[in-house]
Design a protein around this nucleic acid. Structure first.
Length: 271
DNA sequence: AATCTCATCAACCGCCCTCTG
DNA sequence: CCAGAGGGCGGTTGATGAGAT
């Protein structure tokens, strides 16, 4: 019998999303809410798989997403949760407001895994690594001069003596988020994300002059060659949604705008 | 300046789970 | 209870950018 593919492969576009597609998707969801994903592409005028739409929305377009690297507290939380839950990224993500399973998974694979290995901890079992002989890995571990930790008290060295996370810290990662100094300069905490700053800036919120969607400028947008690889480009059209948060809240009860998030965004009582 | 290597992350794939008729 | 449809999840891949040589 075989399972029907989730979508008709014929004519289904793949690859990076364009600003135009993003616009269509958000426009549709703002209008209709999250309904049957399978029907979304057709109704929204997208040549995409429903799954792809859902993924794009949940991982990228949702307005309640935090951007930027996980800060130390979030990282620590991820490690703790992973020790208990394993690779259940969605469950882990559920405990980190504004973070997606994909994001956490990526961060785990690129940052945390290495960090744990350096500390001599098996990232899979959270047990101390066996040391049959002095391996290259062990050599790197020694620079930490850190004894193998009890997995039940997993704690990163940087965090030892670190005060428990305050709500503010949790919401607005600061410079201390640069746990991986080598990469963080260009993409440090969400505070530095120009896109989100732009979207949630006062001037943005107060600018009532937007008219969605302008027939000229916006429509030309995707033809200018902007690709979704650039957040600024691919999402700047979101500026056309002055009440995006309200709409989302009312349309389908997005829970992401928790009180915490509201505080983080510091929108001066906008909501 | 050009090329190579590595790291990152958005997106896809396919399996599994849940819901519905 | 069963089968099929749809959604969700986790693993993997490929494009891209940054740093090293």
């Amino acid at each position: 019998m075989g399972r029907q593919p989730c979508c008709d492969k014929l004519g289904v576009k793949k690859g990076p999303w364009t600003a135009e597609e993003d616009k269509k998707l958000v426009n549709f969801i703002l209008t209709h809410g999250q309904c049957c994903w399978r029907a979304v592409p057709k109704l929204a005028g997208l040549r995409r798989c429903g799954k792809s739409c859902r993924l794009r929305w949940t991982n990228y377009l949702r307005p309640d997403l935090k951007r930027g690297l996980l800060n130390e507290d979030e990282e620590q939380l991820v490690i703790d949760l992973h020790a208990r839950l394993g690779n259940r990224w969605s469950k882990i993500a559920a405990r980190l407001p504004g973070r997606t399973d994909n994001e956490i998974k990526n961060h785990w694979n690129t940052h945390i895994k290495k960090k744990l290995l350096k500390m001599g901890i098996d990232p899979v079992t959270h047990e101390p690594l066996q040391k049959p002989a002095a391996t290259a890995q062990d050599a790197t571990c020694q620079e930490n001069d850190q004894p193998n930790l009890d997995p039940n008290q997993l704690e990163l060295p940087k965090n030892s003596g670190h005060v428990s996370p305050s709500t503010d810290e949790f919401c607005t990662p600061t410079e201390n988020s640069s746990t991986d100094e080598s990469r963080s300069s260009s993409e440090s905490g969400s505070d530095d994300d120009p896109l989100m700053n732009l979207i949630w800036s006062e001037s943005f919120l107060n600018d009532l002059s937007w008219n969605f969607p302008g027939p000229d400028s916006r429509e030309e947008y995707s033809e200018l060659g902007f690709s979704s690889s650039s957040e600024e480009n691919s999402l700047s059209w979101l500026l056309d949604y002055p009440n995006i948060g309200d709409d989302l809240h009312q349309s389908f009860g997005i829970g992401g705008f928790s009180e915490i998030d509201m505080n983080c965004l510091d929108m001066g009582g906008k909501y």
